[in-house]
Design a binder for these strands. Structure first.
Lengths: 134, 134, 134, 134
DNA sequence: GTGGTCTAGACCACG
DNA sequence: GTGGTCTAGACCACC
């Protein structure tokens, strides 16, 4: 099984967004490939012990943005890797989390050098997951 | 004036938290020092063109966590200098926003090089406002 | 009042999409301008005699795509005109409705010249709405 | 072979309707003539790599509306030539898909000129397949 | 079996 | 008052 989703019930970020984001990352890092089938709405909902509507919402959002393709009666599939957004738009979407991260780092009194080094460590850790798919 | 607060109305993070966070940053970076008085709830609310309740909520949270001290009838004052956390604790607190940032960047298909470069740009922009207290 | 939304309950296109699309068109044609406030979720739901969740879904989609900006506790506002999509992506999204239209026209035995003329008529009618805002 | 059907698996319009619509178009444009036999449900399903039930549903709908005639044990045949609708009725039927197309185009910020040019391109592409029966 | 939509109603957070 | 999320359950369409 190449998709493993975990939800943090305590988090302030809504469950459906957690799911969508983890699927997006799985695709961007290659753990999920174009054409791969996703677990059915109901089965994933059962696994995560949440309401099917919540999973459906996540899938629906990904379908709307073109990341997934849903074939009625058959299931949901990875449609493509690319986002279809302009560079400006991608930037605009990245900004909030970048600012949040930097604000947090600075208020925690991390130096520029420490921030860079933490970023590199996390980057290496994240990219490492791209190699093992299958 | 040593306090400069800006609010992003479009952001998903609530205004009262943006204010509280920026006050924390100002203290952590030395722009605000122990004993400094903060603007009154009403004047700050007027400046930012927001509801006084919102400012009051931010101040209240900071008082509750011990960052500010409220002297009845006189105003709010900076109570302590820094977070005083162990390095591992500071790391633990930083992790979530770093991961959120990286996940967002990767799912938006930014390359490692782009991520570094955006971080540097934002870092420069953020640090620029802190030159007053060395 | 510069926003008038009508829903076709018999249509196969879901209500929340009808609402979102009408708002998008209102913005693209200038009937709604950047900064304009939209009716509250609850009031619009009451007017249309549908469930508030359905309106919320439409607004939420528009917020996610960056068309609207929602200020918590204050309401929803028009955020911008531009879509932020690449030309390729805009093309990709246009194709289905163009193909559907042409298939329909051809199966109804309209000639090329008739198709062009009908398009021009409808185009004129639609663009005419752009002049009266306010 | 005078019937060529292609299905768009990603489309929101169900496969059985895509098939039915394309058969209608083939008849309206003369590619299929009264009395022509259609491929068997099984063979068409095999060609398109879909469920035979789906093809059966499409044929069934066309039989019900009188476009096809099903001769038990022998197959399905084209039953009549054209729609036989008045001009206003044909117009009335065309309107919805034209409006949907224009709304989509406008909300995607295509200019009038772009809309015309895309229509021409698609028109040329669509008509190209019809040369066999002049 | 699959996904898609809608309702009703609850609860939370923000201002 | 505002919007945001989630649940429960219903109904539909497709395959």
């Amino acid at each position: 099984m190449s998709l493993r989703i975990s939800i943090a019930t305590g988090s302030s970020v809504p469950i459906y967004r957690q799911i969508a984001e983890q699927i997006r990352v799985s695709i961007a890092t290659g753990r999920l490939e174009v054409g791969d089938q996703l677990p059915s709405v109901r089965s994933l909902a059962e696994n995560l012990v949440i309401n099917p509507n919540t999973v459906a919402r996540a899938y629906g959002d990904l379908v709307k943005e073109g990341t997934l393709e849903s074939r009625h009666g058959r299931g949901a599939f990875v449609a493509r890797k690319s986002t279809g957004l302009t560079r400006t738009e991608r930037m605009r979407r990245l900004r909030p989390s970048l600012e949040a991260f930097l604000n947090e780092a600075i208020s925690l009194e991390f130096s520029d050098e420490e921030i860079r080094s933490e970023l590199e460590k996390e980057l290496k850790k994240t990219r490492r997951g791209e190699e093992k798919h299958g």
